Computed example of a mutant assay.
Amino acid sequence: MSPAARTYDTAGGPPRPEALTRIMLRPLASSLPLGFFAFGTGSVLLSATQLHWVPLDQTRPLMLLVLVFVVPLQLLAGIFAFLARDGGAATALSVLGCTWAGTALVTLSGPPGQRSPAMAVFLLSVAPLMLVLCVAALRGKPLFGVLLLIGAGRFVLTGVYDAGGGAVLLAAAGWTGVALASFALYGGLALLLEDGAQRTVLPLGRRGRARTSLQGDLGHQLDQAEREAGVRRQL
């Protein structure tokens, strides 16, 4: 697709670059529901260990489930978000996928239930990044932003516990994970219903371009497409 009525310049010279350029848009299904559901499942699995819902010797099987179920789905959602031209969601989903992978591998490498100062440094480093992603998401997708905000809070609680904090912090992190899973379940359902009906069914709080992307016409979708990464010459 190219801007209309700009085939030749005013002097009648050769065609402008816009007239010789076609931007091909590949329709893709939204990967956000998959990202929400994977995040919620991982939260439940981690809460099961933090709240001692399962015996301590079941920590390793739970972390293996995180590696084979949560991590691939989270990263897959991130990849397709990049392909769908949503850089913010793609970055957040990819960061979450790698965070789950790091958490699972570090937990598997040590005795079950043992504190990990290395994990504390990692989680407390990721938490500010999550807050930055949250601020960016709140402008258009508040629901996703709140999910990231709750996730950052959980990272802080778990990180402070691993750094030597009291056991109450671990319990707080576990229950925060339960709330996070419930929130992710709602978000995934709302996004699935929206995708199927092509309209908002359950409140999502879309704003700005996130709102017009669903309610606008084709012109809204192509607005400033020539300035997006993958189209412009440099990132």
Rank of each mutant, 00 (worst) to 15 (best):
F155W: 02
L62Q: 03
A38C: 09
T7A: 11
G165C: 03
A137G: 00
C98H: 11
T99Y: 13
V121L: 14
L191W: 12
L157W: 08
G113R: 04
L46V: 06
Q234M: 10
F69V: 15
T99P: 06
L185H: 02
L129N: 12
T158H: 11
T200K: 04
L157F: 12
R60H: 14
A210N: 07
V95P: 09
L191N: 10
S116A: 09
P72F: 01
V66M: 13
D217G: 11
A120L: 01
Q198L: 05
G110F: 11
H220A: 15
A19E: 05
P14N: 12
L235G: 06
A181S: 09
T200F: 05
Q50T: 09
A171Q: 09
A19C: 03
R60A: 15
P61M: 03
L202P: 00
P111W: 08
G153N: 07
Q198N: 07
P55A: 11
A190W: 05
V106M: 15
L123C: 07
M1R: 09
S182D: 09
Y186H: 03
D162C: 06
S31T: 11
L32T: 15
V201L: 02
A184V: 02
M1Y: 13
L124W: 02
T7W: 06
L222V: 14
T212A: 01
L143A: 03
A167G: 07
Q58H: 12
H220M: 06
A19Q: 03
